[in-house]
Nucleic acid binder design. Structure first.
Length: 710
DNA sequence: TGGGGATTT
């Protein structure tokens, strides 16, 4: 291993003790931390030693030094950008400072997070620091789970929840402070919030410049002003500041141990083999400490897992043992939990992870990181004028990912990061990945904005989405009858937006209500919109799995097949224990995670129907025709016609020639036309989640929709 | 005839 041997100093930002404004050193005005007055710290009895220890810990956090300065800054400005490094304590402390100082009035302080786990665990921590029970003064709100009550003043929530709340309360009037955390991750929902907050600020705080406003001017809503704090961990802070009329940026140093970084002298095309060699080099030469290895996907993880076990079994007896733990999102929760168990004595734990370990989970005890420099990325490939398709590709990571990965070695002490790429390769990496708004479908966002009376093409974003992407979104909404030909939202469009679904699936549900099969379509759509796939193959058991699942097969295709599987699961779930249910799923080769999530989504969709006085109970019984017809309405842009060759299909509204995925229930049938859930590109463009439709459905599509085809 | 990075309402 050739070492370029540099201390980690990738983050070239100002590193100032405590806080500084716009990079200026802060010595003059930083004040000693004091317990603030203002709002009460909750219903704590005070005096418990645990609480005293938590409060002592709070005072030791890097951000505590700048507490008063930060409060003054927020008091005097509508918007503050806070650039805080890992371990600064910004996410837990800033909301408490705002509460304790009373600067944000009587409303709720919202703190948004891109991930559910972050929202729930942060809320638990802050509730403990306040000496209160979760759901009292401090609570959280994520999909399917809200722990908050009338006394809740600090609410951790997913960014998606706040975006959803915009639809019922466009000015977010319940909130007197909105803290957007992890803004550098640039999720679509964070970007939407940042954009909307700009107009919300103008409406609630007045039209003047956003910076340095000491007192709220008399405005329509001057009685209910809002404070906005954008928190970021990278230098993108400048961009946020510019967006909000050059508002001030505060910097707070983090608390991170140094990580020594090594690069290879040459590129490593066989990164799995290079990883194996590096790991055993660490194991033989380096002191105890656990190892975290970043790999692109499950396949590499499993192959490396086997190799490590093979080599580890041949280690001399006087060497420490090696315990390998795979870690990726699709892994069953029980196996995921293994990485948090304490390592047995005289053993080195070695975690093989995807980028789930980059931000989503923090594993304690990591001293060494091996970074292959690769990850998997879904790319939307445009194909002429037709609808595009997705491909999952292994690609180089970005500089910011590389830094984040290295940082995982320095959480508890001095660490080491072995990069399996050259320093030149690091320098050639992109700084950070493209914001999600420039990579993902905008159909749903465009519809939600339409509901708020705004046009996505006119809005001020941190980064503008591609015009092509906007046009495609609006075209899709028109095909679904969510907007009319003048681009105005329709009643149907408003109803679609009320569902927590992609507009195409929401459209299918509304159509199913008309066709008397809402029960079935809601069930199917619930599975389709789950995070994971229902039929999830284990590589060496594909044939057995296919055979076992044959009993769910429906001749019309995968949608009815999914319904059959869900129904069977429901029958088992009605009578059997949790353990028996799990065992049944395993035997049927069904992903229980998907089924559990689908049932929750189904209940939420039924509740949404009830709120809108839409009946969800209508059933087509055993007739699948109204079901596929309803799905066709939503998936109209995903329809394709059989070609004369009798095996391939051509998109009706695009130019791609596609095949039915071999795993489909109708892969071996000859059908005249199909609808599909998605296209995946491997050796061919394959349609997945396919059902047969009569050609007559296509003929029935009205002519004015046809005229819209590019 | 074949391959599931990570999020979220």
């Amino acid at each position: 291993m050739d070492a370029s041997d540099e201390e980690q100093d990738d983050r070239k930002g100002p590193k100032v003790n405590g806080l500084a404004v716009n990079g200026a050193h802060a010595n003059g005005w930083i004040q000693k931390s004091k317990r603030g007055g203002g709002a009460s710290s909750g219903s704590s009895v005070g005096g418990s030693s645990k609480l005293r220890e938590l409060q002592a810990q709070r005072r030791r956090l890097p951000i505590a030094q700048g507490r008063e300065a930060l409060i003054e800054q927020i008091r005097n400005n509508d918007v503050t950008v806070l650039l805080g490094e890992t371990g600064s304590g910004k996410t837990t402390q800033v909301p408490q400072y705002i509460l304790e100082s009373g600067i944000a009035g009587p409303g709720i302080i919202a703190v948004t997070q891109p991930r559910r786990v972050a929202a729930t665990s942060l809320a638990a921590r802050v509730a403990a620091e306040q000496g209160t029970t979760l759901g009292g003064l401090v609570g959280y709100s994520v999909r399917f789970d809200e722990v908050a009550g009338p006394d809740t003043r600090i609410k951790y929530m997913t960014d998606g929840m706040l975006v959803r709340e915009l639809l019922s309360d466009p000015l977010l009037t319940r909130y007197s402070a909105i803290i957007v955390d992890e803004a550098h991750e640039r999720t679509l929902r964070t970007d939407l919030l940042i954009t909307k907050l700009k107009t919300i600020l103008k409406k609630r705080n007045g039209d003047g410049p956003l910076k340095n406003k000491d007192k709220g001017k008399a405005t329509a809503m001057s009685g209910n002003p809002v404070k906005v704090i954008i928190m970021s961990a990278t230098l993108d802070a400048e961009k946020f500041s510019k967006f909000y009329d050059d508002c001030k940026i505060l910097y707070v140093k983090g608390r991170q141990h140094p990580v020594k970084i090594y690069h290879t002298a040459e590129g490593q095309p066989d990164y799995v083999d290079a990883t194996l060699r590096t790991l055993f080099q660490i194991h033989v030469d380096q002191p105890p400490g656990d190892v975290l290895i970043f790999l692109p996907g499950q396949e590499d993880i499993e192959s490396l897992h086997k190799s490590i076990q093979l080599y580890a079994s041949r280690l001399p007896l006087d060497k420490m043992a090696v315990l390998t733990c795979p870690m990726f999102a699709a892994l069953p929760p029980a196996q995921q939990a293994k990485i948090f168990q304490t390592t047995p004595p005289n053993t080195r734990k070695c975690i093989l992870a995807t980028n789930i370990a980059e931000t989503s989970i923090t594993i304690p005890g990591i001293k060494y990181v091996i970074d292959t420099g690769k990850h998997k990325e879904k790319r939307h490939l445009a194909h002429d004028t037709g609808s595009g398709f997705d491909a999952l590709l292994t690609r180089d990571i970005t500089k910011s990912s590389a830094m984040q990965r290295a940082g995982r070695a320095g959480r508890e002490g001095k660490g080491f990061c072995f990069r399996l790429y050259t320093e030149e390769a690091f320098e050639a990496m992109a700084v950070s990945s493209e914001p999600e708004i420039r990579r993902t479908s905008l159909t749903s966002a465009a519809l939600q904005l339409k509901c708020l009376g705004e046009d996505i093409e006119d809005l001020d974003f941190l980064d503008r989405p591609d015009l092509e992407s906007i046009i495609s979104a609006l075209k899709t909404l028109y095909f679904l009858n969510a907007v009319d030909k003048s681009n105005r939202i329709t009643d149907a469009g408003r109803s679609m937006a009320a569902f927590p679904l992609e507009p195409n699936l929401a459209c299918a549900v509304l159509e199913a209500v008309k066709n008397g099969c809402a029960l079935e379509v809601i069930d199917i759509v619930s599975v389709l919109s789950s995070t994971s796939k229902l039929f999830f193959d284990i590589s060496d058991e594909r044939e057995v799995a296919a055979e076992v699942r044959r009993k769910f097969r429906h001749r019309s295709g995968d949608h009815m097949t999914i319904l059959n599987a869900l129904r069977s699961y429901q029958d088992v779930a009605a009578t059997e224990s949790k353990a028996a249910r799990k065992e049944w799923c395993r035997k049927q080769y069904l992903n229980e995670r998907t089924l559990l999530e689908a049932v929750k989504i189904r209940d939420q969709l039924r509740a949404t129907c009830e709120k809108m006085s839409i009946g969800w109970q209508s059933s087509a019984q055993d007739d699948e025709r109204p079901v596929t017809k309803s799905l066709f309405r939503g998936l109209v842009l995903h329809s394709a016609l059989l070609q004369p060759d009798g095996t391939t299909f051509k998109q009706v509204y695009g130019r791609s020639v596609i095949k039915i995925h071999p795993g489909s229930a109708i892969a071996d049938q000859k059908v005249p036309a199909i609808i599909y859930d998605e296209l995946v590109y491997t050796n061919h463009i394959y349609a997945r989640g396919v059902s047969a439709i009569p050609k007559a459905f296509l003929a029935e599509i009205s002519t004015h929709i046809k005229s819209q085809i590019a």
